[in-house]
């Protein structure tokens, strides 16, 4: 594989699968829609033709058993990736993810680890409504034993997938269809250790700290450019790894700026934005002005007028950041 120019996010995910299946013979993938071009965007196109239907398994409509099967295979030396084309349907497998995968290692004394990657695809907008639009990463990040990653960049789309699959722990990897058209150049792929990955500053600044994961990072990145034009220097931190959560980068940034805006594409109550703020406030003695932007605490609507006010937008991030910045 050579360095690649102008790769989009969806293709980068596919590059991750390709790298893993070429270099690690114990990797296979299982889930609904893997033999169909319309199920998982361009993120897995023709993998079955390249690596064979024995390593790319399309499945019956059985989220629970397929996830359990991936866990079982992972306990016997394989590194499966189980695909859930929508997070909403992945909830049918929550028992296997939360009761089994997350706890297996701990409850059996660390002697066996399900090295399974559970890929959940977030697929919002388009009037799809309450049962086709959820993300729920805060839920999954709540569970000790699960690692939860959310790539926001093209390179992370590939590299966090590689790191997830090579981790000895169960990992929930969540990608967002709204990011699939992002483009960037991709350096050569290599094996990556997930242990060494964590929140990362993607734009430096001195006036305010913006923290987000996944698509919300894109909102913050664009907001930071607009803020710059208004003379406000925003530091943007991409969480990347939500669990286990390492707040150090964020704490030191807010230590510098004193101002924090957490932007999260999940619900507010018991959500990740609250966790970000709490983790910073409890570690800093200085005064911190903190706000959060989240989804409203309501199921996703279908009607376009309601959908339009449901998802946070760049201008909301800009005006929230300005209102914090202007407070003394």
């Amino acid at each position: 594989m050579n360095e690649l120019k102008n790769v989009n996010y969806g293709t980068a995910i596919r590059q991750g699968f390709q790298y893993l299946m070429e270099n690690h013979s114990n990797v296979f993938t299982i889930g609904q829609g893997l033999w169909s071009p319309w199920y998982v965007g361009n993120s897995m196109t023709d993998l079955d033709k390249e690596f064979g239907k024995e390593r790319v398994l399309d499945t019956p409509v059985s989220e629970h058993a397929c996830t359990g099967a991936a866990i079982g295979a992972s306990l016997c030396g394989y590194r499966p990736i189980v695909i859930h084309p929508r997070v909403d349907f992945m909830l049918l497998a929550v028992d296997q993810i939360v009761n089994q995968a997350a706890k297996w290692g701990h409850m059996l004394g660390g002697q066996a680890r399900p090295a399974v990657t559970i890929r959940g695809i977030i697929n919002r907008g388009g009037e799809q409504g309450a049962q086709h639009s959820q993300s729920l990463h805060s839920w999954f990040a709540h569970i000790p034993g699960l690692r939860v990653v959310m790539p926001a960049s093209v390179q992370d789309a590939r590299d966090l997938l590689i790191a997830s699959v090579l981790s000895d722990d169960p990992v929930v990897y969540m990608d967002d269809r709204w990011l699939y058209d992002l483009e960037a150049d991709l350096p050569l792929a290599t094996d990556i250790k997930l242990d060494n990955q964590g929140p990362k500053i993607i734009k430096q600044g001195k006036d305010i700290t913006l923290v987000a994961a996944s698509y919300s990072v894109e909102l913050c990145r664009q907001a930071a450019e607009l803020l710059e034009q208004q003379g406000v220097s925003a530091e943007v931190i991409d969480l990347r790894v939500l669990n286990p959560y390492d707040p150090n980068e964020i704490v030191s940034s807010v230590g510098k700026t004193g101002k924090l805006l957490a932007v999260d594409g999940d619900w507010r109550t018991c959500g990740y934005a609250g966790e970000i703020i709490a983790s910073v406030v409890e570690q800093l003695d200085k005064k911190v002005i903190a706000r959060r932007i989240t989804l409203p605490d309501a199921p996703a609507p279908t009607s376009r007028e309601l959908e339009n006010i449901y998802y946070p937008k760049v201008d909301e991030v800009v005006s929230a950041a300005l209102s914090i910045h202007n407070r003394v």
């Binding site: 359990g68 099967a69 295979a73 306990l75």
Partner: peptide
């Protein structure tokens, strides 16, 4: 019933 599908996965591995 938690381990039934896990055993199926071990069957895939086998």
């Amino acid at each position: 019933a938690g381990t039934i599908s896990i055993a199926v996965g071990a069957g895939i591995a086998a």
